[in-house]
């Protein structure tokens, strides 16, 4: 059991410099919650995809991170929100290869495969919030570094 210190945060996503802060925060928070190396890498990568999505398609926004628990499991919940144009067709956006911006079109669909839980709340004209949760299923390896 660990405390939520260093896990709860709200970070702005306004420039590509902020993407680095997002990745750094998620990496450290996941390490604190006992994520294994692979799960942590997946979560940081997903956060990078989603934050870039917020920046490029939502015109900027923020990421909120929080610790969540279920029984003896601990996890990290990340919510990326923007006040951009919203996504008209969520299902289509989630399919691979769909893209409106710069990239390989793997953004949302790819990020979804890297996390355990994934939800989109989007209203055209009002913005989009993507919330993901991953659980630290594997105990931290002894050999692991931060």
């Amino acid at each position: 059991m660990r405390t939520a210190e260093g896990v709860e945060a709200c970070l702005p996503i306004r420039s590509d410099m902020d993407l680095m802060w997002v990745r750094q925060h998620v990496r450290q928070a996941a390490a604190r919650l006992g994520f294994g190396l692979v799960d942590r890498t997946k979560l940081v990568t997903a956060a990078s995809e989603l934050a870039r999505n917020t920046l490029v398609h939502g015109g900027g926004g923020q990421m909120e991170s929080a610790r969540v628990t279920r029984g003896h499991l601990q996890g990290l919940r990340l919510a990326f929100s923007d006040r951009g144009p919203g996504i008209p067709d969520v299902d289509r956006t989630l399919s691979d290869g769909y893209t409106t911006g710069d990239g390989l079109g793997l953004g949302l669909g790819g990020a979804r495969r890297l996390v355990h839980e994934f939800a989109i709340d989007s209203r055209p004209g009002a913005g989009t919030t993507v919330t993901v949760v991953s659980w630290a299923l594997r105990p931290p390896h002894p050999r692991e570094e931060m």
Partner: peptide
């Protein structure tokens, strides 16, 4: 409660 959770976590570790 905490000890029970720890016990479950230990089981997970052993399984792994």
């Amino acid at each position: 409660e905490t000890a029970l959770n720890e016990g479950e976590a230990m089981l997970d570790r052993q399984r792994l």
